[in-house]
Design a protein around this nucleic acid. Sequence first.
DNA 1: TGGTCTACTGACCGCTCGTTCAGTGCCCTG
DNA 2: CAGGGCACTGAACGAGCGGTCAGTAGACCA
Lengths: 217, 217
Amino acid sequence: MPAKSKEEVVQEFRIHSIQDAAMRVIARKGMAAATMQDIAEEAGVAKGTIYLYFRDRDELVEKTFETAINQLHKRIDEAWLTAGSFEEKLRAILAAKFIFFRENREFFRLYASLRLPEGTLSDERRDRQRRSGSCQAQYRARIDLMAQTLGEAMERGDIRRMNPHRLAIFIIEGSNALVIERVMEDQSPPEAEDVELITSVITGGISTRKSSKRSTH
Amino acid sequence: MPAKSKEEVVQEFRIHSIQDAAMRVIARKGMAAATMQDIAEEAGVAKGTIYLYFRDRDELVEKTFETAINQLHKRIDEAWLTAGSFEEKLRAILAAKFIFFRENREFFRLYASLRLPEGTLSDERRDRQRRSGSCQAQYRARIDLMAQTLGEAMERGDIRRMNPHRLAIFIIEGSNALVIERVMEDQSPPEAEDVELITSVITGGISTRKSSKRSTH
DNA sequence: TGGTCTACTGACCGCTCGTTCAGTGCCCTG
DNA sequence: CAGGGCACTGAACGAGCGGTCAGTAGACCA
């Protein structure tokens, strides 16, 4: 492969710093309140410069979103593959998620807004808000992946039969809520504690008699 | 008590129709994209008229929010009181929530945005967005209430010991996610099915061996 | 019926924010 | 060192918003 030219290096650096600034500003002020001026200042460039690298605000937000979420999903996929049983998989991806958000606290606000598209439900003709369409799709894909795994475990008889898609939503969004709780807290308990709580509730429920085979490490 | 004067009746009617319109518009376009003009048109009044009944946009949004959420919480409280064991309580409040959102689909977008305040995490000096402060507090109170009930059940030995606050968040947000899923769907399964799924997972987990005492009615 | 009062209206204002583009200065080449 | 190219700048622009207020029309009373 050819070495990167100086122009390419500079270009990548610029794109990266602008996206980085965008993430920080959005995290600080929220999606709607983050202005191009804010982002430009945070990145240490002029407002106009952003438009040399991104068509408009929507593209900047969407690209920023995508870059960050790809990192998260890479981590989760790795965790997913290392583990065997469903319980191990669950434990692994929860840990990956919690750790990712400890290292990237800024990202949580973008991530939290994934759950539902901004303007929908009947009138969609409006010009602006085709907000982060591809990320929304990635989110659904994530749910489907978990649902599929759950479905397979049901086939095998490892877990009870129920609606796997519903169960997947419940698990993922329940744990996302704890991610957000952790980010908002000044001082959180170790990740392992929350991972254990979720995993044990999902596998064995809250009743006193233990139904999961495992003991504390 | 004195009969309501004509002026009072008219005033209440106006307030109600404006709040109603606000809820529909926000549901359709999202919190940020809903303009005063939109709401006025939806309510069939002029933009200026809204300002006769609400100080500014913030107050309109907050009051609308409060009115709707009070209805929901009244339902949940009623359900809460009728039931005895924790499992029954859980089943009752889930059913109340699902039914409320079947009847008030428009409200879901306001409700979904409850989870986190708009601009926080470090710089909060900004003028505008002290968004729905009291509702945010109501939400936290809701979590605390469930956490307290869980804590008491732990004391009694009915359920395993774990962090009750964390567990409360997990249950409430997991079920909220299913509320949203239901609202977005064209055709949902009966509420009872989702209620049963959540309740059984929480009480008994997903493993094949049954740990909850109950059978299908 | 004429007069007053007031709930209501919608054109208007000031402002913010996304986007543009003529200008500027730095870097590279010959 | 001269000069052309280009990445970068930020003042300026226009769209769209929340909020205002002089004007209006209809209800009510004497």
